[in-house]
């Protein structure tokens, strides 16, 4: 235990690895969640009543499915998805295995947040686009997304922070990461110092993410 830091039971290396694991889990699950959640969020907007691709069926199926997924607590999702995770990743334990439930957690969340962001876009702008004879794709990519971008950035910031929190819980399946350290050393082995350091680390991560998100969003809005 030569490498211990500030009287913690974990080494600096462990802490660093934890950091890396958290980053890896959050980044990868965020990427997949956005790839899934963004189109779903867009679909939720454009298929609603009176919008450009109004479609009762799509909207009325998608809407409750997202609600159902969002109402399952992450820790339950984590366990319930074990067979599926094992099928996809090959194992139900470890960092990669945690990514699967994280996506199930974050994608519907992102879909809902994207929906909210895009609903903020002035309907008049969509009307102007339609009057110009824009195609559905053009309306989405040339009007809806650029106009909602500043708000979307904040949306993704919120989602990322949600993922940091959830990834900490993923320690329950031995996912690694800062949260895992907090759970298995700080909480289960009553190592107060580790608890403090890991929580502080999480606080720093969240603060950094939020500030970055705010700055980027503001910059886009200012333009």
């Amino acid at each position: 235990m030569s490498n211990t830091l500030w009287g913690m039971e974990i080494t600096a290396d462990q802490l660093l690895t934890g950091f890396g694991d958290t980053l890896y889990m959050v980044a990868l699950s965020l990427l997949f969640s956005v790839v899934i959640g963004l189109p779903l969020g867009i679909l939720l907007v454009i298929t609603r009543n009176g919008h450009i691709l109004e479609n009762k069926w799509v909207f009325n199926v998608l809407n409750p499915v997202i609600n159902i997924l969002r109402s399952v607590p992450f820790i339950i999702l984590l366990v319930a998805l074990i067979p599926f995770t094992r099928f996809v990743v090959g194992t139900a334990i470890g960092t990669n295995a945690a990514i699967v439930p994280l996506i199930f957690y974050a994608a519907p969340y992102i879909a809902r947040l994207v929906e909210n962001s895009l609903l903020e876009v002035d309907k008049g702008i969509i009307e102007a686009a339609e009057a110009m004879g824009a195609t559905t794709w053009q309306i989405i990519f040339r009007f809806l997304i650029p106009e909602g971008l500043s708000s979307l950035v904040l949306t993704f910031t919120t989602a990322t922070i949600g993922l940091v929190g959830a990834s900490a819980m993923a320690g329950a399946v031995g996912a690694g990461g800062v949260g895992d350290l907090a759970l298995s050393y700080g909480y289960q082995r009553f190592d107060t110092m580790t608890m403090i350091v890991t929580v502080a680390a999480l606080v720093v991560i969240v603060q950094l993410l939020q500030s970055t998100g705010n700055i980027v969003s503001k910059k886009i809005r200012r333009r």
């Binding site: 002035d122 008049g124 702008i125 009307e127 102007a128 339609e130 009057a131 110009m132 004879g133 824009a134 195609t135 009007f143 650029p146 106009e147 971008l149 500043s150 886009i220 333009r223």
Partner: peptide, 19 residues
């Protein structure tokens, strides 16, 4: 869509893209 391009429209609240 082609016909709509022959009809311009302006609005009370302008509806310009702020971005």
């Amino acid at each position: 869509r082609a016909e709509k391009k022959k009809i311009g429209m302006i609005f009370q609240h302008f509806n310009l893209l702020n971005s």
